[in-house]
């Protein structure tokens, strides 16, 4: 779970970086651009997968008897 979350956060950061890269380019190096888009598409796919409906886990806890 925590793994998935950190991945999502990391993915979003990387996607953001790619988008900023495009925005910072006056003229995009086509080959580099395609490469970046490819990576970006993969990251977006992963992120969407995490964001799509995943059933919640439900656990009931009780007072711990150790007290």
């Amino acid at each position: 779970m925590a793994q998935a979350k950190s991945n999502l956060t990391k993915n979003l950061k990387e996607i953001e970086e790619i988008v900023s890269w495009f925005e910072s380019q006056e003229e995009v190096d086509v080959e580099k651009g395609i490469e970046k888009v490819k990576i970006g598409a993969k990251l977006i796919k992963e992120s969407k997968k995490r964001l799509q409906e995943i059933e919640n886990e439900f656990e009931e806890v009780k007072k711990e008897l150790a007290e």
Binding site: L12, E27, V30, G33, I34, K36, V37, G40, S47, K48
Partner: peptide, 30 residues
């Protein structure tokens, strides 16, 4: 934040698609 994240991903996807199309156009022109 989950909903926002979803929207963010969708908007980034659109941007990236736009960049991709631009890159393709550039390649076409080239």
């Amino acid at each position: 934040s989950w909903d926002q994240c979803g929207e963010l991903v969708r908007s980034k996807e659109q941007m990236l698609t736009h960049f991709f199309e631009r890159a393709l156009r550039q390649m076409q022109e080239y």
